[in-house]
Amino acid sequence: MLKGIFKSPRNPLSVLFILFSLAIIINIVEFPFIERDSRHNYSAVYKYRYQNVIRVAIDHDNSSRTAVAPYYYLGLVFPESVVVMPTDDRLADSVSIRSFGLASEIRYRDYDPVKLFEKTNIKPHLWNLMQLADDRGNVERVIEKTFGIATSNQPSGTFVILHDRSGRFYYVDSNLLDAQTRKDLGIG
């Protein structure tokens, strides 16, 4: 076969055959070195410990963790919830609540999420979200900084978003709010 291709050094086919082969050899030689020097998510054949790229990203990346985890865990534990959030909320992202959080509905209300947080005792009702994480060390830090989920013993399926003063937001089961607050927020 090669005899048919390499008939003359001035044959462009011969020249290109050699150059193509050279490029392939370079690719093969460099491949392991590129792999060695690449971060896991830029490495071509890096194998993660488990399936589901969302969980992988939450465990490996701060940016993915803060952008995805607060919503993905809501969808994982309480899909199809109704979420009540302040109009123009500055902490929680409504698009992510609808998508990763799989919320069935978002209702916008004018209320102060910090004041409401301070008059509601949610601490005994907070979920231990660490159980959902694979890499507890990193994820724990982010969860402590960004979000929490608090429910009563019989969750209503409606969550109200509250903020603490440190900039963490919480999905709070509407059953944990007093009757007047629920009425003010228009929750049945």
């Binding site: 194998k47 790229v53 990346d61 995805v68 998508s99 990763f100």
Partner: peptide, 16 residues
Amino acid sequence: VPLEKYHIDTFKYFRS
């Protein structure tokens, strides 16, 4: 075999 790779943009595609 979990080989899929991501970038933060990946999750924006997921959302949409």
